[in-house]
Design a protein around this nucleic acid. Sequence first.
RNA 1: GGGCGCUUAGCUCAGUUGGUUAGAGCGCGUGCUUCACACGCACGAGGUCGCAGGUUCGAGUCCUGCAGUGCCCACCA
Length: 918
Amino acid sequence: MPHDLPKAYEPGAIEARWAEYWIKEKLFSVPTPPPGETRPVFTLLLPPPNVTGRLHMGHMLNQTQMDIIVRWHRMRGFLTLWLPGTDHAGIATQMMVERQLAKEGKKRSDLGREAFIERVWEWKRHYGGAILDQMKRLGASVDWDREYFTMDENLSRAVREVFVRLYEEGLIYRGKYIVNWCPRCETAISDLEVKHEEVPGKLYEIRYPVIGSSEFITVATTRPETMLGDTAVAVNEADERYRHLRGKSVLLPLMKREIPIILDELAKPEFGTGAVKVTPAHDANDFQAGLRHNLPQIEVIDEHARMNENAGVYARLDRFVARERIVEDLQAQGFLVGVKDYVVPLGKCDRCGTVVEPRLSTQWFVKIKPLAEHAIEAVEKGEITIVPENYKQIYLNWMNNIYDWCISRQLWWGHRIPVWHCGKCKTMVVAREAPTKCTNCGSADLQQDTDVLDTWFSSGLLPFTTLGWPEKTRDQEVFYPTALLITAYEILFFWVARMIMFGCHFMAGHHQDPLIKQASGWADKKDDSVPFRNVYIHALVRDAERQKMSKTKGNVIDPLEIIEQFGTDATRFTLAAMAAPGTDIAFNESRTEGYRAFANKIWNVARFMFMNLDRVEASLRPALAGSETRPHMGVAGFEPTTLEDRWILSRFNRVARDVASELEDYRFHEAANGIYDFFWGEFCDWYLELIKPRLNSADAAEVRTACGNLVSLFEAALRLLHPIMPFITEEIWQAIYEGRPPVKSIALAAYPQADEKQIDLAAETDMAVLQDLIVSVRNLRAELKIEPKMRVPIEIYAHGNGTRALIEQNRGAVERLATVEKLAFVESSLAKQTGARSTARFDLHVVYERKIDVETERKRLRRDLEPVEKEIQNKESQLGKEQFVAKAPAHVVEGLRKRLEELRILRDKLKRQLDELG
RNA sequence: GGGCGCUUAGCUCAGUUGGUUAGAGCGCGUGCUUCACACGCACGAGGUCGCAGGUUCGAGUCCUGCAGUGCCCACCA
């Protein structure tokens, strides 16, 4: 065993070494089990980070939580598969490479599509692994042999299969619709990729002259440049103000075009003048109204957000320049009625922040309602459980109000749409593989659709495509549905909802291997088409000021820097300890500093243990390490011979029991805090201190037992902690076995399972009395300003059952931990003395010859007495109420009575002491 | 416009189905070179649980209103 451990724990090298070992030994690789497998299975899909990504706190939190759950299951004997991979991230990656090209003074069009895509692959080969390398540093226990990339050939084939099937089922259609257009990215983007902001702007009121009348109709707009494309003015049928103008037309200013006045619900009488301009080509609402009234669609803004040839004299102007020019001209010609300050809702591109332009264009859509139905049902019926529960309602609201999904993107990087257009007859050939001739006319003049699919289209398929779909594989029988998905709220709609829709649709009729389903605890679930049984939505990590981290704000905390500074274990522990479900995490470095100290504490327990083991004959040590008896579900080879032994064993089992239920409910913070308090507050502060005399005993057998117990309990505690702090626990655990561990890694050892029989209430209450006594002496010593090293005599009057025997038996502990000599028992209550403390179980007197300032002492007694009297009053009035006694549960009333009794005894003692002082 | 959170010690946060004395870490004060650990040990100070009502024998916890604050969704010119 190591003799020369450094005093302070240095995580850097140790963590790197084990991370590498785990991967090299393929400890987390899961081969496909043959039929007949009866182990429970736990599958989890890593939400694929973008290939362009760098690890941020969100990933770190997400992966820490996943790794905790995954390691926990693995140690409990689940066949545990955690599938890693990366997403090709269409726009993000393309932008990255375009930026690179820009530095060379080139554009993607200079290269051409093929060369550009080759360039992206090259980029991916070079830099795409960065985020996974960072993951390895975190110790994420994923199966690296199954790593995927969303554009791998097999996954791409599955994407084409899905597209073709949906098309054949009539669930994919192509059409000219208003879409959100990003002029910078030059592509359509989905509704979800538009971020809405409210910014101060202007509302322009423009009057349109009514033809054949001297009247005007005034309309309002925040985007005056769109008026060039107006093809009607709408008023509401119920609006009496415009009754006389029905059937008439107006002359569109600047364009001198005659456009009709129509009656449409689009116009709300209560808003402004009640009249609204209609621009079907540049506004989603107007588009719908245009369809209702068969209006022409006149496009005036092009894909670069410049005015086009339909815009007359404004052609080629940027939309915002045109806006100013048009407003000036309207003013000059007397059509501008007014300009008001107005808060304008503005849609911006999620990626680049450019103001999105609603634009008419031909795109591919998924008809979403039929897919949503099953996806709604799966959640409503509890086939999928979403935690925290409030997200369930958010999910259902969204799914019930869902619009068709625009899936085409005018990008080059991505899954190209598997549709070929015939140059001759214009037929669209939708096919799994590139066709050689047109299915309609036989022409070989076929051009593949230039668009690619939205990234989320392919990632929405991952739960089954990573398991070999569309082939029917054994992997699917075993690992699908996955057990759990842990992810951030932000992608609930982008990704989670789509996975549910696709999973329910394409895996309908799928049945998980019944043996495995049963063993994994899913017997009550009816629907095996769902992509996962549970979804846990984790919180957002914010900075210490609760601000959302963002690059533009410059408040991003780099997890790698934190890791560098404090270690991965400490960082993981921080995130776990702060991750209460449903609330955001304000990341605070001082916490991580504290958990580094925790790692250091554990390290020093190891040093202490090894130091003591050195005193035992070498031949006995392997037996103490317990290679024969471990791995074991609980604490192996522990022989409780003393109160502290029974107590720590009880505490350990209680904590193990609590941790199990806390992790079951994703209450990471409670599990983490529970282990922390046990390790530091109980195991280190009390148990280790209490057993020191035994470790130093002259009796070899006693030393041997004490050492054995120490190793045994510490080893079990390491396993308990391992899912949260994998590195330090592995390091010490391996050291305990001197290079000959019973299994290759602590990660494969058994997770401690609570043994109810070892929970010992009597030991816990006895120990509490002892602790109370020791703390009381220390407290009095401090108050009396007694020299730290000076051993003082104490007197104790013990009452209550067995209190005296208890203290007698543990006299040595009290004397040592409280620096006491001559612990004496007296036969009557110790009311007289100063330097005294009373509790329900004992009166304590520290015998110390020192001039007591009577006044100070009186003050102290009064200060002690006050809250006691207050509480007594409280309890008395409470118990005096008939209602309370009648209605409150018996144990509450009983508890109150007991407490009151104790308080009364205490009060009497304090009062007598006060009287004695005069 | 709709929806959802948050407000507890100086700071950052816990506190599941209402139940006896509201907790932690950091920070703060006092004292300790105690032979595992100063990334430590011992002892301590510090809270009208945002405000106002209500339900209840009992409210940090449930309800209503108000005030701050944050987020998400939304095609109102």
